[in-house]
Amino acid sequence: MASRNSPGWTKRPDLTLIAEMVEPGTRVLDVGCGDGLLLELLTEEKGVDGRGVEISQEGVSACVSRGLSVIQGNAETDLYDYPDGAFDYAILGLTLPALHQPREILLELLRVGRRAIVSIPNSGFWRHRLHLLIEGRIPDMGAHAEGWYDTPNLHPCTIRDFVMLCRTLGIVIERRVQLDSRGRATRFHGTGAFANLFGEQAVFLLSKKNN
């Protein structure tokens, strides 16, 4: 059973917010679903018809042995196999900066899903800015990397960067929630300058303009 008190959940506060954005009984694709924590919760609590894509064998095996339908694959090559609008939601949790082609994948999410839910780590968070300013070194951003040379985050972006990209691509931000360093949803909205400073992560509910 998925428990919101399990260590996996406390480590990933964005997942709770993502789960809240999903309407019950919908079709969901979780891209980079890991060991299936979110998918399992969505299946059990919201009765969704869930599918996942995960790159690691360990993750896929964990998911499949939980009874989830997950394929071992790479988001950057395998999303193209799904038909248009196959899902109500395509979810991408915290992995956007780790992709080689984040812009293309964002568009793909909104092709296979009528909506996309994307969470990102915010490079504009004040602590990261301060780290760069004072230490003069690239912040780790929670990636637990040995150094800048082995961080999975190939394309770090800020909340404002992401909002700008959505604007360029004609993507509508239906909802946006920032998480502070304790994983709590913050009050900052408006122009986003404060959000970009005080949000450590952000979760976006997206759709295309012509929807």
Partner: peptide
């Protein structure tokens, strides 16, 4: 959009 799991 069939129901498929795949593991290598």
């Amino acid at each position: 959009a069939a129901n498929v799991s795949f593991v290598e």
